[in-house]
Design a protein around this nucleic acid. Structure first.
Length: 495
RNA sequence: GGCGCGUUGGUGUAACUGGUUAACACGCCGCCCUCUCAAGGCGGAGAGCACGGGUUCGAGUCCCGUACGCGCUACCA
């Protein structure tokens, strides 16, 4: 056990996206590795942009990923009173001042132009305390700004980026409290981090500027600094920061859940962007890591400084997201212990109305065999109910792919009589095994002077409606004697 | 504009404190296997480490400069 405490502090202005998820993951891994506490704090002080739906989205994302937290979720808006008190404390101690200048309305469009202007000296900075108090007394609106000292610099030793320094001249007198009394981000974060005893702040590199401001606040409040570790950013293929507005649902983690990802596979993928195991902690070329392994080998020192690109191409159905992520998922589906996979497949079948309770009792062996067969070609969990449908329905309520019918059934008119004949032979088998089925099919092919491949491919399509799938004789066994005969007869009618 | 950070094949990464033909994974191409498609096995193309200087017997690894990219710069977080 250690007294290390970290937090993940998303603002609910969007769903949990890939970048946020990785920040959460690294915090979580670190906490688990050192035996510390992982805290979830929702930074909802921006009431206009925050919404309950987004909070739910974040919570769902965390749950799906299995990033369990030891404390929270705390909602920052509940602590506004403390934040306000801190602002006034700073005002009293001379670290902050009232700014009576009227609010400047700025929108997103003009903001970047405005900020190009030089920092201007604020005339209210040196307003005598008595006058400031008097004006406040009359009810004149004001914001409370932090009074950044004139000479000196802030500094902190970042675990990832090393020593960071910033001249006071490059830091503006940030607003602590809005004119409506609303506390702002930098103040709230610092007060909460102090209150929660956060020892390590692990967050995106886009906060490095804020960190300098926060360092100032820690000092003014007379509190020791936590350690900071800033993470490199995850970029979109166009090299811009991932964002909900620009990149849409493709960057939301719930999209991956809904697309049939195994959470552990996604975690594995995420862990490897912007971080790599340190020398000697893992087999040199290992890529697949279980959660436990990741916890074991994780260290903040293995995080690197350069941004990474998360690849996806919209509109490309097969490669809709990062190909390595896709591959990773496939790899997990293929190789994960069956007992871990089964609980993830069950809800998919239930959703599709394909689940039967006897899959866990009398038909357990058949069911597991079927899943074992399907998993070799399933790229996502969705495939079990998708391509897998013909394996689970008793009737013919599955789709016959047009191309498959054309290619494998209508290719040779002789199949119209061959398939019913094959159905009869299958039905007549006393023992229905891989070998007897194969022998029956090959014997028929030989008698009729056709290639076994013709019958094999036609049978596959007859049984599943598809042109691709597992080895035929495995497939026939799983479909079973009755259903196989029935489907062969039915297929003959399609010719 | 200012401040900061970064730069190894298409992508993600590796390369101990500078030392053989820059390694692995994904993706791509080919071959093998084969009843289809995958998987798997084998092999291949693809970076000379952003560029230019310097230090050194020797630099992707150290130093300087340049370019490019990204981030931040708000009474958002």
């Amino acid at each position: 056990m250690s007294d290390i405490r970290v937090r993940f502090a998303p603002s609910p202005t969007g769903y949990l996206h890939v970048g946020g998820a990785r920040t959460a993951l690294f915090n979580w891994l670190f906490a688990r590795k050192v035996g510390g506490k992982f805290i979830l704090r929702i930074e909802d002080t921006d009431t206009e942009r925050s919404s309950e739906a987004m909070v739910r989205g974040i919570l769902e994302g965390m749950e799906w990923l299995g990033l369990n937290y030891d404390e929270g979720p705390f909602f920052q808006s509940n602590y506004a009173e403390q934040h306000r008190a801190a602002a006034y404390q700073l005002l009293e101690s001379g670290w902050a001042y009232r700014d009576f200048a009227p609010k400047q309305e700025r929108d997103d469009a003009t903001i970047k132009q405005d900020i190009a202007k030089q920092k201007v000296f604020n005339p209210f900075r040196d307003l005598p305390k008595t006058e400031s108090d008097a004006r406040a007394e009359t009810g004149e609106p004001f914001v409370i700004r932090f009074k950044v000292p004139e000479v000196g610099k802030t500094q902190f030793d970042d675990i990832v980026f090393g020593l960071q320094e910033r001249d006071y001249n490059d830091i503006e007198d940030l607003v602590l409290l809005r004119s409506d009394g609303h506390p702002l981000y930098n103040l709230s974060v610092v007060v909460d981090d102090i209150e929660m005893g956060i020892t390590h702040v692990v967050r995106g590199q886009d906060h490095i500027n804020n960190t300098h401001k926060q360092v100032l606040l820690y000092q003014a409040l007379g509190k020791p600094l936590p350690r900071f570790a800033h993470l490199p950013l995850i970029l979109a293929p166009d090299k811009s920061k991932l964002s909900k507005r620009k990149h849409g649902e493709i960057v939301s983690v719930t999209t991956y859940r809904d697309a049939g990802f195994i959470p552990d596979a996604f975690i594995n993928f995420l862990a490897l962007v912007g971080w790599a195991p340190q020398e000697g902690l893992a087999a040199k070329d290992q890529e697949i890591f279980s959660r436990e392994e990741l916890i074991n080998i994780f260290s903040l020192e293995g995080i690197h400084k350069s941004n990474a690109v998360f690849n996806f191409s919209e509109g490309d159905e097969r490669n809709w997201t990062d190909q390595k992520a896709l591959w990773m998922n496939f790899e997990y589906i293929k190789t994960w212990p069956l007992e871990k996979l089964l609980p993830l497949v069950k809800p998919e079948l239930q959703k599709a109305g394909l689940w039967r309770d006897d899959y866990e009792t009398e038909r357990k062996a058949w069911y597991e065999h079927t899943i074992t067969l399907l998993r070799e070609r399933a790229r996502t969990l969705l495939d079990f109910a998708g391509h897998g449908r013909p394996y689970f329905v008793d009737d013919l309520s599955f789709e016959f792919e047009e191309a498959a019918v054309k290619k494998n059934l209508q290719k040779d008119p002789a199949l119209k009589t061959l398939l019913p004949e094959l159905a009869n032979r299958f039905a007549a088998l006393a023992e229905f095994t891989h070998d007897t089925v194969e022998a029956a099919l090959r014997a028929l092919a030989e008698e009729k002077g056709v290639k076994a491949g013709l019958l094999i491919n036609a049978t596959r399509t007859a049984l599943t409606g598809q042109s691709v799938g597992p080895s035929l004789f495995e497939l026939v066994l799983v479909v079973g004697q009755n259903r196989a005969a029935e489907r062969l007869n039915h297929a003959a009618e399609l010719i």
